[in-house]
């Protein structure tokens, strides 16, 4: 898998500029995304998350600033946008609604076919992608609409994986799934990062899911309100609460226990918290 770096340099985007419907999409975003790392983007509805994702793979072009893939400006005149599209794969929210082919394998072949791969190569790429997402061979020739919700979603993700992106961008990949389906998707993303060296950028409304990322980006009204490691970002409880956001469960518990007079260090997850509590208990 290719190692890539995507940089957003002082990027702004405005919807309907110059009209009374003018609305801010993104303002002055400076961000950098690399293969092998994971990023969580959080922010309430309308904070600019979707705009950001669309800027990342060239569906929108910035009104100001540049988007650079490995140093190349993707909106320069001579740049072939397909290069960006195949390097930064975008999985929309509820991607299963975008399945359209008669069979699973044809659906997954669609992406690589459009990138100009030969039919044999497409088939290879599609099979590999389906194997990665855990769809068994006996399902390849089935109608995708006969699969379960979780399976459909994994097929839709395979459709993007088949293009071999260096960075995979997903808009709420676990929304609407049951806890088991959600775990499968999250562990798939982990596998892609670890074994395929893929960069993962995930929009999430679940702070416990977001806390697993290397870097957390918090958006508010189109601007980057906070950015840093999950530990750093989620320390800003008051700030996040002001933005209508939350912190992971264990951190909320830590706060509550401190307010009840229990002297605890910063605890990030249930494991750390239970260890700290048991230490006090056994003292």
């Amino acid at each position: 898998m290719k190692t890539i770096k995507l940089v957003l340099e002082n990027v702004s985007y405005v919807y309907n500029p110059g009209t009374i419907y003018e609305t801010v999409g993104i303002t002055d975003a400076d961000l950098s995304f690399e293969s092998e790392k994971s990023y969580a983007v959080i922010g309430h509805t309308g904070s600019g998350k979707s705009t950001l994702l669309q800027l990342m793979n060239g569906l929108l072009s910035p009104a100001k600033g540049r988007v650079l893939l490995d140093g190349e400006d993707v909106h320069a005149k001579k740049y072939k946008i397909k290069k960006l599209r195949s390097s930064v794969g975008l999985v929309f929210q509820y991607p299963e609604y975008q399945l359209f082919e008669e069979t699973v394998i044809k659906d997954v072949c669609f992406g690589p076919k459009n990138l100009g791969y030969t039919p044999e190569e497409c088939l290879e790429l599609a099979k590999e992608a389906l194997r990665l997402v855990g769809i068994e061979e006996d399902k390849f020739d089935q109608n995708p609409f006969n699969l379960s919700g979780g399976q459909k979603r994994r097929v839709a993700i395979a459709g993007v994986l088949a293009m071999n992106p260096g960075i995979l961008v997903l808009d709420e990949p676990a929304a609407g799934l049951d806890p088991e389906g959600k775990e499968q998707i999250l562990s798939l993303l982990k596998t892609l990062r670890e074994t395929k060296k893929m960069g993962i950028v995930m929009v999430s409304h679940n702070m416990d899911d977001a806390s697993g990322a290397d870097e957390v980006i918090v958006l508010d009204k189109g601007s980057i309100a906070l950015k840093g490691s999950a530990r750093e970002v989620f320390k800003e409880y008051e700030r996040l609460a002001g933005l209508g956001l939350d912190v992971p469960f264990a951190m909320r518990m830590t706060r509550l226990l401190r307010s009840r007079g229990i002297d605890l260090p910063d605890c990030f997850d249930n494991e750390e918290l239970s260890k700290a509590l048991l230490k006090i208990y056994k003292r």
Partner: peptide
Amino acid sequence: GLRAPNAVLLRDMLKDGGMRLGEHIALDE
């Protein structure tokens, strides 16, 4: 295919570590 709420999971971890929290199962933080 379900998971317990986080509060129940934490309670279990504490219980496994030897803390006795009584019979009542707290569901919220």
